[in-house]
Amino acid sequence: MNTVFSEEQRDCLQELINVAMGLASDKLARFLNTFVHLQVPAIELVNSTQIPAQFEAQYSSAEAAFVSQGFLGNGGVRGEAIVLYQLDNAHRISALLGYDTDSASELEMLTDISSILTTTFLNGLAEQIDNQLSYSAPRVLSSRQNNVTQALIDTACHWELALKVDISYQLIDHSFNCDMLLLIPGEAVLNIQQILDRIVEEY
């Protein structure tokens, strides 16, 4: 199974993601009633076994969170979106969403933020390829109690390829950084490659 992306496929994907990010930031800005600036996301296709090591340094502190949400579309597009962020970063955005910072609602806040970021972005991506996605409920796989790296190792081994998207949201007076990982199983990678090839042909 050839899961290596050609240069054309890669460029096409980067373009789709840029547009999806634009759509997402527009929606977020209207929803949060504040200006949202999104840097062009850096994307990287990585073998999923390399992922834990990549994130170990950045998220090894106990104050990181890791939320997973499954997505499923037509034509064999499926995978798992993972949002990783530092908790103090999350608290900045939680105030905008109207949450108290007490620990009782922390998990709820984490799942809400991740779900909003994931679904607005992926809906934007799906829109461009005439697809529609459904989502599973978001689930916190790791927070204060658990080790992010171990949780990543446990999750990553089920997937062949990961699309790593570094997202940095700048809101006025708030900056919010997170990493989004799209973990995609092998046969879904092939389906996505076919979709990308079709788009490339059309232009």
């Binding site: 929606k27 709820e108 779900s115 409920a137």
Partner: peptide, 25 residues
């Protein structure tokens, strides 16, 4: 009420789903 209004607002504004789990609520 406040919580549900916020949830529904995000669904309408962002046109994307929102979730609530028994584990949190």
């Amino acid at each position: 009420e406040a919580w549900l209004r916020r949830k529904f607002a995000s669904v309408l504004e962002l046109q994307s789903p929102s979730f609530s789990s028994w584990e949190q609520r």
